[in-house]
């Protein structure tokens, strides 16, 4: 499946994507839709937990960002912006606390799709049932991208993860708001071409900094791409060529900037200090923190 195939499919694009996938895998379309609805429910639960919790992650680098933003005054008077950012960070902070999330397409980028799609839906008062088809299209966009490149920071840098999630989210929001298959795919393409080159440089190797705030930024990026595409703006470079270009940039990227924590933010004085602190064992073992967080959650 190529992006161009989705672009030229009859509307709605999600229906065509679902039919293709079910022909390939032999799954029942109704079962896939039911499972998608259940996953939207898991996403929503992670958003709700994340907005309420300010428990620190194992490294102490994140844990309070989503709640902090959600509880802060809306000084810009931009409720959609704040909602999308807070939802995205809520999911990734739950992920950093070893909570249950839905990878979309990865765990490190798990906040972007729910942040953008559920954020927009809640802003407009739409139901979870209305999100099933857009979510199926999001998955189809991810599938088309993954046929051309590995969707992991280790193989392609952060562009491969957050770029894919933003493209998926952009297409989903576009379909939710009535965009044509062409507009949906161009939204994805616009999101991707404006993510090319982004490196994966997690501090200490943990999926926390910059991952949590990055999901907030790219959830907004996705909504922004949808806005352009819904106004009939298009990606000058054809969508599949954009994916190939991103894959090529991933191949050219030095290993130090592909999740090894050997470059970028991970190698700043502060990044190195955190790494040293973690390695010296000056924190609780990773498993202990998860269990303690779970116990605290059950008590509260």
């Amino acid at each position: 499946m190529k992006l161009e195939d989705i672009m030229n499919a009859p509307a709605p694009a999600s229906q065509w994507v679902l039919d293709q996938d079910c022909q390939e895998t032999g799954q029942d379309p109704a079962a896939v839709r039911a499972e998608m609805l259940s996953r939207i429910g898991v996403m929503r639960e992670s958003i709700e937990r994340g907005l309420q919790s300010d428990a620190a992650s194992i490294t102490g680098m994140v844990g309070w960002n989503a709640k902090g933003l959600w509880d802060a005054p809306d000084v810009l008077q931009a409720p959609l912006l704040r909602r999308v950012q807070a939802y995205a960070m809520a999911v990734n902070e739950e992920n950093a606390r070893m909570g249950r999330i839905v990878a979309a397409p990865t765990a490190g980028s798990a906040g972007t799709v729910p942040g953008a799609l559920i954020g927009v839906a809640d802003h407009l008062g739409l139901s979870d049932e209305q999100l099933v088809d857009p979510m199926i299209l999001a998955a189809g966009i991810g599938k088309a991208i993954s046929e051309k490149m590995f969707i992991s920071g280790a193989a392609g840098g952060c562009q491969a993860e957050i770029g894919s999630s933003a493209a998926m989210a952009a297409a989903a929001v576009t379909e939710l708001l009535g965009g044509s298959p062409r507009a949906c795919v161009h939204a994805a393409s616009l999101a991707l071409m404006n993510t090319i080159g982004l490196v994966c440089d997690p501090v200490g190797g943990y999926v926390e900094v910059p991952c949590v705030s990055r999901n907030a930024f790219f959830a907004v990026h996705a909504v922004s791409a949808a806005q352009l595409a819904l106004a009939q703006l298009e990606s000058f470079i054809p969508p599949d060529e954009v994916v190939s270009a991103m894959a090529e940039v991933g191949r050219m990227m030095p290993a130090a900037l592909r999740e090894t924590a050997d470059g970028g933010l991970a190698q700043t004085p502060t990044g190195l200090a955190v790494t040293a602190r973690m390695e010296s064992g000056d924190v609780l073992p990773i498993a202990t923190v998860a269990v303690l967080n779970e116990e605290a959650r059950q008590k509260s």
Partner: peptide, 21 residues
């Protein structure tokens, strides 16, 4: 790879490739 592998898996964090995979 199917649609449910792209929006999924439902998993315990923190990394799909390093934890779920």
């Amino acid at each position: 790879m199917s649609l449910l592998d792209m929006v999924g898996p439902v998993m315990i964090g923190p990394s799909s490739s390093h934890t779920a995979g």
